[in-house]
């Protein structure tokens, strides 16, 4: 059965990946908003923002990457909802396959498509003057953190995709996630914020993740914040996975 699970997941991932490669506009749409934000903040607001870093784009990129993931996962719920509504989800569930592979295919596709969008955003950042002396191990660590964060948000997206009634609803759950980096250290240092806002910003998941990635890019020693970042990501991942599975088992007998 395990072999069957991996085989079926591979087949179904191939299917959803075709959805991505055949509508490349999805990847572009996902990347365009973060890129536009990056342009706006670097070339319009950036001159007035004091971050202590010479290149504002270096300061900004980690937060932009998280916004990219927030944009990307709204399409994950949309793809899942489309499958639920078209009846193809039920067709797969009534076939002699490993049933959970249908969900895992969406999850893997979400991770891969998000990584492509992220690469696109990093490329534009490089063109805008982003530079990092980070070595291979630091880049790997950054990729690892982003993958865990993507997985965590993807399982949240699965809940939305399984429960939403309309495409608008399926996409809307991502708005708070996209907005979260604005109230964090992603755009400006948190010490400039009024106390209550600062308290929120310092203690929400995005700040610790942004700071960790920023330190890795800047070849600074990472603080204990990396553990806070991982704890948030893994915590969200585990809770979202459990809830998504419970939702899934309520939807299919």
């Amino acid at each position: 059965m395990t072999m069957r699970f991996f085989g079926d997941t591979a087949l179904l991932t191939g299917r959803t990946m075709r959805h991505i490669t055949r509508s490349l506009d999805t990847i572009l749409t996902v990347a365009i908003m973060p890129i536009a934000l990056m342009l706006l903040f670097v070339y319009v607001f950036g001159g007035a923002i004091r971050t202590g870093s010479h290149h504002y784009v270096n300061y900004l990129l980690p937060g932009i990457l998280l916004i990219t993931i927030g944009m990307g996962i709204s399409y994950t719920s949309l793809r899942l909802l489309t499958d639920m509504q078209s009846g193809i989800f039920e067709r797969f569930q009534s076939m002699p396959i490993a049933r959970s592979s249908v969900l895992w295919a969406h999850v893997l596709t979400s991770v891969v498509s998000n990584l492509i969008s992220l690469a696109l955003v990093v490329l534009v950042a490089l063109l805008m003057g982003f530079r990092s002396g980070a070595g291979a191990s630091a880049w790997l660590a950054i990729a690892g953190i982003l993958v865990v964060f993507t997985l965590a948000l993807t399982w949240l997206a699965v809940i939305a995709g399984l429960t939403a009634k309309t495409p608008d609803g399926a996409g809307a759950f991502a708005y708070p996630i996209i907005f979260l980096p604005f109230i964090s250290s992603a755009f400006v240092p948190t010490h400039t914020m009024p106390a209550p806002v600062r308290a929120f910003a310092n203690n929400q998941p995005v700040t610790s993740i942004v700071n960790t990635i920023r330190d890795l890019f800047a070849q600074q020693p990472v603080h204990t914040e990396i553990w806070t970042a991982l704890a948030w990501s893994l915590g969200i991942l585990i809770v979202a996975y459990a809830l998504a599975m419970a939702t899934y088992h309520r939807r299919v007998a």
């Binding site: 299917r15 075709r18 959805h19 055949r22 509508s23 078209s86 009846g87 193809i88 039920e90 067709r91 009534s94 076939m95 002699p96 396959i97």
Partner: peptide
């Protein structure tokens, strides 16, 4: 049971993009 059956639901359950 799933080995023995096939289901054609009320709405054509086909993949539009493939």
């Amino acid at each position: 049971v799933r080995e023995s059956i096939s289901l054609t639901g009320q709405f054509a359950a086909v993949d539009e993009i493939l």
